[in-house]
Computed example of a mutant assay.
Amino acid sequence: MNQLKLFISLVLLCSSFSLLAQNYNNPIIPRSLPDPTIIKAKGGFFYLYATEDIRNTPIYKSKNLVDWEFVGTAFTNETRPTFEPKGGLWAPDISYINGKYVLHYSMSVWGGEWTCGIGAAVADKPEGPFVDKGKLFNSTDIDVQNSIDQFYIEDKGKKYLFWGSFRGIYAIELSKDGLSVKPEAEKKRIAGTAFEGTYIHKREKYYYFFASVGSCCEGVNSTYKLVVGRSKSLFGPYYDKEGKDMMDNGYSIVIGPNSRFVGNGHCSEIVQDKKGNDWIFYHGVDVENPKGRVLLMDQVKWDKEGWPYVEGDSPSLSTPKPVF
């Protein structure tokens, strides 16, 4: 009987270890990697870029979205953009356009809401080296205060840039190479003054407008949250679950705080695993180690009305891994 009990205990213990091995823990990378963006490149690797708490824009790669390797930076001190001489490189957005990897970036100093702007750099490989192509525009050029947090999207054969941070969200058409504003294109306001960090995801008949509200950068006092609205048109109007227009600062919360992670927001693109599950990266503040904004990941699920949600409406601690 004692041998049987021992055998059962060993089986249960092995099962527990097996279950743990199939899970991942947040944070995915326990160092400051704010405002992540991600792309799947040829060869099957995912590449992730983030705001430069690691100088010159850090790049990581992974086969499974869980185990990440640092591969370098998009720029060097000699090749980094210079149109805002003392500015930091914020909120990169990676895309594959006409056979090139195009990295749109924001460049700003804290509080420099009329001198900040958006630029682009290109590379033949996702790990770079990236060659800066210069400024698309700054706040003064485009007459939009706080012109940062850009997002590139293609729709119906055209290329667009969305951008803005707590001064309205705007969109404008780009040139065919995505490196400049299309001549004579006019900007269009899309959402109100509550938002920054736009990401738009097309799923079935809707465009889902993800953004962040609240304060990003006050450590454990940060109030950042990831929110969403949706529309049947790329340019809106976007409405929340209750029917409030995002132009009037309506939104529905996707990821809020919990006892471990606060200030959670500014999401990456949604990517799918081999099982068709959707995953999203974002940053948050770990209250157990509140230095910087760490990289978090969660599965995005969809309710019967087609709205996105994350289990518990806040970051997970231990969750089954993506399937690859």
Results as ranks from 00 to 15, higher is better:
1 M>Y: 10
3 Q>P: 11
10 L>C: 12
12 L>D: 12
12 L>M: 15
15 S>G: 14
31 R>P: 04
34 P>T: 14
36 P>D: 05
39 I>M: 11
40 K>L: 15
42 K>E: 14
46 F>I: 03
49 Y>C: 07
49 Y>T: 10
51 T>N: 02
54 I>E: 13
54 I>N: 10
56 N>W: 10
58 P>K: 12
58 P>E: 12
67 D>T: 15
71 V>E: 04
71 V>R: 06
74 A>P: 01
74 A>H: 02
76 T>Y: 05
79 T>R: 10
89 L>M: 08
89 L>V: 02
90 W>I: 10
91 A>D: 05
91 A>H: 02
92 P>C: 03
106 S>L: 02
108 S>E: 09
108 S>W: 01
114 W>V: 13
115 T>R: 13
118 I>H: 02
119 G>C: 08
121 A>Y: 09
124 D>A: 13
125 K>L: 10
126 P>N: 11
129 P>L: 09
134 G>Q: 03
135 K>D: 05
139 S>M: 10
146 N>L: 07
148 I>N: 00
148 I>D: 00
149 D>S: 04
151 F>I: 03
155 D>H: 15
157 G>E: 07
160 Y>H: 06
160 Y>S: 01
164 G>K: 01
166 F>Y: 15
167 R>N: 13
168 G>E: 11
169 I>D: 03
171 A>D: 00
174 L>P: 06
175 S>F: 04
176 K>V: 13
180 S>P: 10
180 S>F: 05
183 P>K: 14
184 E>D: 12
188 K>L: 14
192 G>S: 12
193 T>S: 14
196 E>T: 01
198 T>F: 02
208 Y>I: 02
209 F>A: 03
218 E>A: 12
218 E>N: 15
227 V>P: 04
228 V>K: 03
229 G>A: 11
234 L>K: 10
238 Y>G: 00
239 Y>C: 00
242 E>R: 14
247 M>F: 15
247 M>G: 06
254 V>F: 07
255 I>Q: 06
255 I>G: 05
258 N>F: 15
263 G>S: 12
273 D>P: 10
276 G>Q: 12
282 Y>T: 07
287 V>P: 04
290 P>A: 11
295 L>H: 03
296 L>P: 03
296 L>G: 00
296 L>K: 00
298 D>H: 07
299 Q>Y: 05
306 G>W: 09
306 G>F: 11
312 G>N: 06
313 D>G: 13
314 S>E: 07
314 S>G: 08
318 S>H: 13
319 T>C: 08
319 T>R: 14
319 T>N: 12
321 K>F: 02
